[in-house]
Nucleic acid binder design. Structure first.
Length: 458
RNA sequence: GUGGCUGUAGCUCAGCUGGCUAGAGCAUCAGAUUGUGGCUCUGAGGGUCGAGGGUUCGAAUCCCUUCAGCCACCCCA
């Protein structure tokens, strides 16, 4: 028809995606899903339960909760009913609303995990997108250090389960800083000071001091004192001792140091390996709502990509939505950033198939027997893909090779008439014959055995 | 959001100061090998030179705008 022709030659819409928003190819999704599954397993192993919340919230719920910066980055608009709404930029603020709203139905301490996308309209960079997946876990309504220790432990187990061996959880306690600010009457400038401190790793102590003096307008003595604390180096024990001396003039600071000590001790007791948790007085974190211990997790081999799992304690987040004071502690795994890092470090094994076995669609006349064989194997719990069309065997094997199938089943007239099929191991190239008698029992047994053998871990 | 670099085939890139029908490697498809992949050889297909506009006899090449990616600042997962 003329219409069709016109349509084909008419202006085509350019297929494209928004800046910072991405499509995921199957091989990427297979890895993503695997990581998500791992995170889920670890969270559940500590008793965290899943929740979900809407992507969209009333603007008043989200506004002003993550500091001025997240307000600027938030996607906001009026919906069809003229309501001002915003897309969530993290999972912590929605959690606060959620807890306040459902307090009656929740058992405290409430331990939940939440794996969902969040949106931030900031400039993109490697490992930094406008839509990305966060994997949060938090404990609400527990003030004890036990919840802090557990947060560190979950991060530790998480990294381990994700196959990452070279990582460091850096920990600090905001109370130490807050005690200092209190002593000097600088609570008002706290946020600005923290923001400057956060640059320490990048611009160095001298620049930070200069900025503290000139931009934040600190006097010489408090600035020098702060620098002394923040640049302290040494083992966890040494740092605890020094920080304790340093904060001697402030009960709050000393309490913070003591808490840090308890976390380090608890972590060591649980893991027997305290090296992964390192006290770092320079960790500041820009987010305003943290009040206690704070965590950042860096990959030792790629620190430049930033923290892949961060969090901390906030003692009054839900206070904005309800009267009850609800302390909480938790952290967030940045799955997309982690994945970008793993890819760069070549730590992701490319997987292109979801099923390990392929049946070659080799002879059209045996279509039904192929279907029956596939069904039989699936019933036995073996993932099977029947090649989508009858085609040259060489092409099918090539496809199987590229997609990474472990085994290909080849059967044509000769085999079916003799009652067996050939099973080709795609790695070794070797073939074995399996009888199809007795509902293909031999084939099922062979594949079950072969696939259960653990792949050698890289 | 501000500044810098980049954008040529599915991928990685070449194409010098504007000038023949825009190339290579890998990948794809076909054949050599009518029922056996990864190697080899032969051949084929595939390009709005990111998009739009401008300068010019002539633009992948120069200018402007725009979109996207990367890097720095900022902030952060």
């Amino acid at each position: 028809m003329a219409d069709t022709t016109d349509k084909a030659s008419a202006v085509r819409i350019v297929p494209r995606t928004l800046k910072g928003f991405r499509d995921y190819l199957p091989e990427q999704m297979l890895v993503r899903e695997q990581l998500i599954e791992t995170a889920r397993r670890v969270y559940r192993s500590y008793g965290f339960v899943p929740i979900d919340t809407p992507a969209l919230e009333y603007l008043e719920i989200l506004e002003g909760k993550g500091g001025a910066e997240s307000d600027k980055q938030m996607y906001r608009f009026q919906d069809h009913g003229g309501r001002w709404v915003g897309m969530r930029f993290d999972l912590t603020v929605p959690l606060a609303r959620y807890v306040a709203q459902h307090l009656g139905q929740l058992d405290l301490p409430f331990k939940r995990y939440h794996i969902a996308p969040v949106w931030r309209g900031e400039n993109t960079q490697r490992g930094r997108y406008r839509e990305f997946l966060q994997c949060d876990f938090d404990t609400i309504g527990a003030e004890s250090v036990a919840a802090d220790v557990e947060t560190a432990l979950v991060i530790h187990d998480l990294m381990h389960a994700l196959g990452i061996r070279q990582f460091t959880i850096r920990i600090n306690n905001r109370m130490i800083f807050n005690g200092w600010a209190e002593r000097w009457g600088l609570q008002q400038q706290a946020a600005a000071i923290l923001r400057t401190l956060d640059k320490l790793g990048k611009i160095g102590p001298a620049e930070v001091e200069r900025e503290l003096r000139e931009v934040v307008r600190l006097d010489e003595r408090p600035a020098a004192e702060l620098l002394q604390m923040v640049t302290a180096q040494g083992s966890n024990d040494e740092l605890l001792r020094r920080l304790d001396q340093w904060g001697a003039g402030s009960p709050l600071s000393r309490e913070g140091v003591e808490r840090l000590r308890q976390i380090v001790d608890g972590f060591a007791a649980a893991t027997g390996a305290s090296l992964r948790l390192k006290i770092d007085p320079a960790i500041a974190r820009g987010l305003d709502y943290y009040t206690g211990p704070i965590f950042e997790t860096y990959l030792d081999e790629l620190p430049s990509i930033g923290s892949v799992c961060s969090g901390g304690r906030y003692d009054d987040l839900a206070g904005l939505y309800c009267r009850q004071r609800l302390p909480g502690v938790g952290a967030s795994l940045g799955l997309d950033r982690l994945l970008a890092a793993l890819e760069e470090l070549h730590l992701v094994e490319p997987v292109r198939t979801a099923a390990p076995v392929m049946i070659a669609f080799f002879d059209e006349r045996y279509y039904h027997p192929y279907l029956q064989l596939a069904t039989r194997l699936r019933q036995a719990g073996i993932g099977v893909e029947l090649y989508a069309e009858p085609k040259k065997l060489a092409a099918q094997l090539k496809y199987a090779d590229r997609r990474g199938f472990r085994y290909v089943i080849v059967a044509g007239t000769d085999e079916f008439q003799a009652g067996f099929c050939r099973v080709k191991d795609m790695r070794s190239g070797q073939q074995v014959d399996c009888s199809l008698a007795d509902d293909a029992a031999q084939l099922v047994a062979f594949l079950t055995q072969a696939l259960s053998e653990r792949r050698p871990q890289s």
